[in-house]
Amino acid sequence: MLNLERLRTLDALARHGSVSGAADGLHVTTSAVSQQMAKLEREVGQPLLAKNGRGVRLTDAGQLLADHAARILSQVEVAQADVEAQRGCAVGELRIGAFPTGMRGLLPGTLTALSAAHPGLRLLAREQEPAESMAAVVRGDLDLALAIDWHNKRMPVPTELARAHLLDDACDIAVPVGHPLADRARVSLGEFAADEWISWNEGQFCHEWLVHTLRGLGVEPCIRHIAEEHHTQLAFVEAGLGVCVTPRLGRGPVPPGVRLLPVSDTVRRHVYVVWRADADRRPSIRAAVDALREVAAAH
């Protein structure tokens, strides 16, 4: 009979495309992955992996078995959810991924409430960008992920995932105190056509949103500086190096040399949580979603 953990290893190899990626996803060593695959090959009596340059690829037999493994593991997920639902207790391990401001603004209160209400639940949190964390939920490396999109640019959600809206997060424009618009009660994004911008990393969803939005207003943005953390962006603003969009969720203290200006345009992030639809009945998932909603409502 085929061993479930070895099928899980094969599934991880198929999803990640490399031994090292599978090892990271399974939180084991590359040696452990290789050993499991060697045992699985002995079980089925034929090669499942072939060398491909410095890496490996699945053989035809390996791909065939990996397709079966994905369906088997999905059914195991459903079985686990049904058993937990029948038991009615939120127990076991729950792995949550979150983007930085969601991690800071929502997860401390959520994890504290879950730990108090469900002492049998082991909680693990990981900071990741939304696209990465949603992919990790699809792969089964995470159970839940906090994600965002914007009022005028939606992020595609894989069909395997269920989602729940948590809150709409308003954003402001951060400018130095000496900026010509610093004393305004409200501004429009189009008024910053001549300004230099501080943005997120190129390729990130929020960076793409900023460029897309400004171009939609007829402004070709001059993005001079790139910084991952909002606190770093605000430090650059205080130094007079540009302006930036700053969400309110998880913002923290604002440097004294920065002014925050509300935007008359509808500049909002939609914050939501996603999980695998086949795990929908797990009490731990439902408990986490409820706790996130309560913390988000308070925010």
Results as ranks from 00 to 15, higher is better:
G120H: 13
A90C: 10
W197T: 03
D265T: 00
D290L: 12
V245H: 01
S31Q: 13
V44L: 10
R163A: 11
P256S: 11
R126Q: 13
A297F: 11
G92W: 02
D169N: 14
Y272Q: 04
L121W: 00
A296Q: 04
L260M: 13
E41Y: 12
A279D: 06
W197Y: 13
V28Y: 04
R184H: 12
A136T: 05
E238I: 10
P119K: 11
L107S: 02
H179Y: 07
T101K: 09
L261H: 00
L48S: 07
N201M: 15
V33D: 01
L107Q: 01
V295D: 02
V219A: 07
A90R: 00
V254G: 04
G62K: 03
P119C: 12
A136M: 09
V137W: 01
G242A: 04
Q86Y: 12
T213F: 02
V245S: 03
E41Q: 15
N52C: 10
H299Q: 15
G92T: 01
L142F: 05
C244V: 06
T110M: 02
D183W: 11
P100K: 11
E93G: 07
P255A: 08
A14W: 01
P47N: 13
W197S: 00
V175E: 00
R282A: 04
F192P: 03
R268Q: 13
V83H: 11
E93L: 11
G218K: 07
A239P: 06
H27W: 12
L210G: 01
V245R: 03
R186K: 11
R184W: 08
A14V: 01
A131M: 12
P100M: 14
P221C: 05
V177Q: 08
P158G: 06
D265W: 00
L65Y: 09
L107R: 03
A227L: 08
L2Y: 14
R186W: 12
R57P: 02
C171A: 15
W200G: 06
D11H: 06
A85G: 09
H207W: 05
